[in-house]
Write a protein that binds this DNA or RNA. Structure first.
Lengths: 118, 118
DNA sequence: ATAACACATGAATATATGTTCATATGTTTA
DNA sequence: TAAACATATGAACATATATTCATGTGTTAT
């Protein structure tokens, strides 16, 4: 996944436009972080977990039962959601309850739904 | 990537909650499509292309030069964006100009930026 | 204390995916 | 028509990642 060939093999057609865009683009690192966030949303299991948590706080076993998946698989995915600061959790005895920890997810998902149902 | 073990190995703790969530969740196929859309946003190159197109319509070579990547790599990614109905294109002589074809992307990206800059 | 339960996690495996390379397609110009 | 250019695309390769399996950690109950 190298990303810096010496130069583009095409002759550049619109240098001024390219310069203008270059000057107004967000920084590469910022866009990397943005892609990283969307990558978290780009998995069916995680999307289903998030949608479930829209409706109710749930413990790990609840989610596993709901999605017919193993506790381990769910736990791994919850870790990723935790690392992205999208879910929070609280311990209650042996159980750990997860819930959403972000106000933007709902809007992002709603907009996404709008797109796919066009 | 099997997703249907015979049953969750845990005893289910909150069956009523699980039932309630199950009844109110969007359909699995719908959530698959949603994840598929976000997966498209989950790559740095595609995110950078989209951000560039926020600013200006661009031909393939312009984008390749802008991102210091090969024409081929850009072309492959544009195909994915095309298939997801996120970009459109028009031909002008030898060049093909790409632009955004969706009103939701801007909102989704703005919300995403909000999240990462928290 | 020890067994049982809920959850977390490291390693391994299978699959998905982004880039490269070679080449094909479509358009313009000589 | 042929050459040059811009773009598209199939195959190969390398990397990323989701699930499984085995096992570790933390809590409760006996």
């Amino acid at each position: 996944m190298k990303k810096n060939p010496d130069r583009c093999e095409c002759s550049i057609i619109h240098q001024e436009t390219v310069d203008h865009v270059q000057q107004n683009m967000p920084k590469k690192e910022e866009l990397f972080d943005l892609a990283e966030l969307f990558r978290v949303f780009g998995d069916t299991t995680r999307v289903r977990i998030i949608c479930a948590l829209f409706i109710s706080e749930l413990c790990v076993c609840d989610i596993a039962a709901l999605l017919s998946m193993t506790q381990s698989a769910i736990s791994h995915q919850l870790r990723i959601l935790k690392q992205s600061r999208l879910v929070k959790y609280r311990r209650e005895g042996k159980a750990v309850f997860y819930s959403l920890d972000d106000d933007h997810i709902k809007n992002i998902f709603a907009q996404g739904m709008d797109h796919i149902s066009e």
